[in-house]
Design a protein around this nucleic acid. Sequence first.
DNA 1: TTGACTGGTAAGTCATAGCTTACGTATCAT
DNA 2: ATGATACGTAAGCTATGACTTACCAGTCAA
Lengths: 109, 109
Amino acid sequence: MNTVAGERETPIYAAIAHPARRRLLDLLAEGDRSVKALAAPFAMSRPAVSQHLKILLDAGLVSERRAGRERLYRLRAERLREVQVWLSRYERFWHDHLAKLGRYLEEEP
Amino acid sequence: MNTVAGERETPIYAAIAHPARRRLLDLLAEGDRSVKALAAPFAMSRPAVSQHLKILLDAGLVSERRAGRERLYRLRAERLREVQVWLSRYERFWHDHLAKLGRYLEEEP
DNA sequence: TTGACTGGTAAGTCATAGCTTACGTATCAT
DNA sequence: ATGATACGTAAGCTATGACTTACCAGTCAA
């Protein structure tokens, strides 16, 4: 059993694994929002939403600034690019018809 | 506190949240592999890899077929498209940044 | 048939994710 | 100054994710 080298973990994939956090990002894509505004559509408590926001914050997917007694969260979508880059290695599987044909020929010798 | 409607959860995001499972997909992108071959690069036990494979299987990201005493796993990359579609809503954020950067560089030679 | 492989699954442990309520702090309005 | 608002965080609970070892069944080779 050999070890996989350079296994440094990105918190981004775990951050977007939860549907509530993806929804939060979706809301923030429309513009900066306060915690209250972000929590409104959810059935869960506001502290729960705060905890989700912290996870997004730690992953660098959002930033926060204070405005009076509110805290406004802002989307940092650039961090999602890492995921897109990883996904791009698989694009050929649904874009490239030749690849499909190649795989078909492989399974039918 | 209103409820978010239609909160149907996809197992795909959770499936790709674990680095070992992303690595397994990466390995399978090179071609079909037996469990033994897939487990080789990992420090964890083979049953652990089997359990990861089951999660990928349940998410529809891989399929399995039997060949003698081996089980060959095959990538089903099309299922990743769902993630790419979600990500595409954020592409403009870094495309905008790049466009701005490009214009800035043109103005300041 | 016997023994070596391949690989799934059960059982058990440990850590942590995800929620709740309770509380503290800063800000604003009156 | 007082009370209401916005929010973070601590504490505690439960469920589950991620591993391990032990065991089982199926396949192949001698």
